[in-house]
Design a protein around this nucleic acid. Structure first.
Lengths: 405, 405
DNA sequence: CTGCAATAGTTCAGCCGTACAACAAAACGC
DNA sequence: GCGTTTTGTTGTACGGCTGAACTATTGCAG
């Protein structure tokens, strides 16, 4: 909450008067980021060299971060060379944690991560939330979350915020959910129904976002370029734009709606009312139907057929891949980011999608001769939005450590 | 040049150590922006109130900006109320100027603007640069630019930088032109052929960008939302994304290629090799042909026919508008910015395009029920890229006044 | 084993830029 | 004409960073 109260719609900090303590805040952030993003635990001297600050300044800043529980010191280890051994600095474990929450069509989830990226708690409850009652479902999520937060705080950790992932259009200004077709929810503020509190009663800052967008952020934990497009295949097809390791949200966060990009104006009618949307070719129901499976067949069944070289399933995959390639070509031509990460069901199906997607991109992306197009499967695993949400909370702590130390 | 040397690919400043003078730089920018962006000339006290700085601090900063020629004081005018009369502050006129350059298919242009937004110099040379020689054309542009810069500097002004607009794919990292189909140019660095110098021999910082993108920036001079999509119709169809009054450049600046978005996969073959690109419906040649005019007919001729309610011309306009609406719907669904500014020939044709574009957007934009879609004609006038380029130079001065005072 | 070089981290004076408060300047109004 | 009001300036205090000197702890050469 404090971290975002002075940010513009797109998340960029609004310019305001800089005072002495602004220096402190900025340099604290710089040092915290240097420690968190380092691949090998740096010493104070390493941080000084990396940031351009003096060792003296880094020392005082690090001391503050250690006191605040954001950074921890490892026992000094003698290097292979002369000189006093360095004290390696690492993101603190089990001190400050972020909470990821999700309501999706077939499960509720809560996942808690610490600054080291460790999963501290993970709870999933399966169910069927098609056309469900928001108050009831969010009430249940609240119970689960409250239990998890109690456990975590009982173990001495501090929950600093939560992100709720929803499969629908979320307004990034006010966190309202405009519509979530597959849940049957519309026009509500989840924070009215899900006020989370720490055990001492203080409210836990909660922000709401689209599921695909938080799932995209989970990829940042792995080896991925700093800018990429993320496309998540599920019942719907959602996408996210990540630039310089940050979500690009457009005007109010309702972007990345690649599921309704035109593939063929003479194509089948979509649930949105238009004709030939991508979802009618690469959405779960369309793919299952094309593979002669029931609409709601599990993904594993399709994979089974594909592994057995079933003609119908392969045809369905190729049709989906061609359509996906066409829509992604538009995406790349418009946004200008040449790396595509396939998430959700597309990650599982990547071996059967990749070639046709790449071929279509090669034909339709105008800049194809000048840049290397890169299509790859997501790495974040199951229910990535939970990880992404929790990570995002922790990122906001690192981005504004002054508020937490 | 100094302003961008430490910026990331997308133009966001790379974080680095903050020192005392960082405060100065940031607050100088804040004050300069407050003066430049104000609608009515503010006093030092007004600026202090707007920025949150104290009057004392604002005074020293303003004095510096005045000394550097970025800000000027108007004679104090007695307000209608008690108190010492304020000294109104305005962007300085005819002191610091930015240079916009452009090579397009049918003209070369140079335009010089000062901080007040006044056009200080404007020179256009018509010609035909289809399949032209880059060295020759840029050499000629260099001559014209050199003459203009000499005049301007002779009048006591200081040219602080230049932007060159080209109708093609420009790499925003290194300023190289990858390809400009209508000029027949490819793979060259315009700065090798166009090194500009002030009269005293010091080189003038030159950056290169796509024509539609600089034209989009020219809109910021008028009454336009802080985020919008800009679509420019010409021989090709180009676009730009402006968010928070800044260009969004994706990974390397080759975005906004809306001309090659899929309108109909069964449509006519495009020069890019793919089928049914927007350019085959809304590009100049396609529209002229559909209106039964020669490919290279002047726009005025089409307008004439449209004003006369010519059936063929109207059909061509509607076909173009439907296709444009379809591609723009994709654009909006993907990027999430609901305001569209029609530029270039589309600005002239806006009366005949708007209704069909708006109708198509209403059908295909997923968020249409929740946000107000806004389609409007560009305001910047002829050869907007020149204005946008010059403005962009001046914006970079205001964004980093410390480098210039 | 001893002393020296090398590296890490700490201490302290100095500097710089902003805040705060008092003050000077220039209007209005009764 | 004098108090009031608002603008802009002056001087002091304070906070945060730098730079240099200093301490701590290692490796290595002799």
């Amino acid at each position: 909450m404090p971290a975002t109260s002075t940010t513009s719609p797109t998340g960029r900090p609004a310019p305001s008067a800089s005072r002495q303590h602004t220096l402190r805040e900025r340099n604290l952030r710089l040092v915290a980021a240097a420690v968190v993003e380092a691949t090998v635990p740096p010493s104070r001297a390493d941080v000084a060299a990396a940031t351009g600050l003096t060792r003296a300044t880094v020392s005082t800043l690090v001391d503050r971060l250690v006191a605040g529980g954001l950074v921890a010191e490892l026992p000094p280890v003698a290097a292979q060379r002369a000189g006093r051994p360095a004290v390696p600095l690492v993101p603190a474990r089990r001190t400050v944690v972020g909470v990821g929450l999700e309501v999706n069509v077939d499960y509720l989830g809560v996942r808690v991560l610490d600054l080291a990226g460790d999963v501290v708690a993970d709870r999933v409850e399966r169910g069927s939330f098609h056309d469900s009652d928001p108050g009831h479902v969010l009430g249940r999520l609240r119970e689960i979350a409250h239990g998890v937060v109690s456990d975590v705080e009982g173990a001495g950790m501090r929950a600093v915020g939560a992100r709720l992932a929803l499969p629908g259009l979320v307004d990034s200004h006010d966190g309202r959910l405009e519509v979530a077709p597959n849940l049957g929810w519309s026009s509500l503020d989840p924070r009215d129904l899900l006020d989370l509190r720490a055990t001492d009663g203080t409210p836990l800052a909660l922000e709401v976002a689209n599921e695909a967008k938080l799932a995209a952020l989970a990829e940042l934990a792995g080896d991925v370029p700093s800018s990429f497009l993320y496309v998540s295949g599920d019942v719907g097809v959602g996408a996210a734009i990540v630039v310089d390791r940050q979500l690009f949200l457009g005007d109010r966060g309702w972007n990345g709606e690649i599921g309704h990009v035109v593939v063929d104006p003479a194509g089948p009618r979509c649930t949105c009312g238009a004709l030939g949307c991508l979802e009618q070719y690469a959405g779960k129901e369309a793919v299952m139907r094309a593979a002669h499976l029931p609409d709601d067949a599990p993904l594993a069944e399709l994979v089974e057929l594909l592994l057995g070289h079933d003609g119908g399933a392969n045809g369905a995959a190729r049709r989906a891949a061609r359509a996906l390639g066409s829509a992604l070509a538009d995406f790349i031509n418009l946004v200008g980011v040449p790396t595509v990460v396939l998430g959700g069901a597309f990650a599982t199906l990547e071996p059967w999608l990749r070639d046709d997607v790449v071929a279509t991109l090669g034909e339709r992306v105008l800049a194809a001769p000048f840049v290397e197009l890169d299509v790859r499967a997501a790495q974040a695993g199951e229910r990535a939005a939970l990880t992404g949400g929790a990570r995002e909370v922790l990122r906001s702590v690192v981005a504004d450590p002054a508020a937490w130390v």
